[in-house]
């Protein structure tokens, strides 16, 4: 059953919560000293799991000895925005910075498109952030839309068109 859960998470790349894929029966069979019924072990497990943002699915090359969070290609941008949102807002407004470059990479934008990429998002900052506290998903959606409205970026960034269904 656990294997099934695990594999279905791998196949669909979506399980609602990454935690579901992590069958918590300890590491391998019977060597791990804290059995999963013990209080200590279950609390440890929760802490480990909550260390990663868990609203998005990741593929799990999983065993209970390891957490292998390889982010699905089509979720890369969304996960990136969620993990870095606060600092990214700063760079969106500043029109420069490494997170902005990383974001451009998740959209498959080549390096030479970076000035246009930064300029487009900086100019649209007020529209990107209509509310003070935006959900990552909404911010990501607005960023994608803004970029897609730019014909030049639309052709240059290889992953931009492919993301229309996300949001």
């Amino acid at each position: 059953m656990k294997k099934l859960l695990c594999l279905s998470a791998l196949a669909l790349g979506w399980s609602g919560s990454a935690l579901a894929a992590d069958g918590s029966s300890g590491c391998g069979v019977g060597w791990y000293i804290f059995k999963d019924k013990s209080l200590l072990s279950s609390s440890l497990r929760q802490i480990t799991n909550s260390a990663l943002p868990n609203t998005f699915s990741m593929t799990f090359g999983t065993s209970n000895c390891a957490k292998h969070s390889i982010v699905h290609n089509d979720k890369k941008g969304l996960h990136f925005v969620e993990a870095n949102q606060s600092a990214l807002e700063m760079e969106l407004a500043a029109g420069e910075g490494e997170l902005l470059e990383g974001l451009a990479q998740t959209f498959g934008c080549p390096t030479q498109s970076l000035p246009a990429f930064s300029f487009t998002l900086r100019s649209a900052y007020t529209e990107l952030m209509p509310e003070e506290q935006m959900s990552s998903r909404a911010l990501y959606q607005r960023i994608s839309e803004t970029l897609r409205d730019n014909p030049s970026l639309r052709t240059q960034c290889s992953q931009l068109a492919a993301r229309e269904d996300i949001g």
């Binding site: 791990y32 804290f34 990663l52 000895c65 390891a66 957490k67 969070s69 982010v71 996960h79 993990a83």
Partner: peptide
């Protein structure tokens, strides 16, 4: 007494 784990995560985390 602790148990070691390997963790793969994006570097930005």
């Amino acid at each position: 007494g602790f148990h070691g784990i390997f963790e793969t995560a994006p570097f930005y985390l």
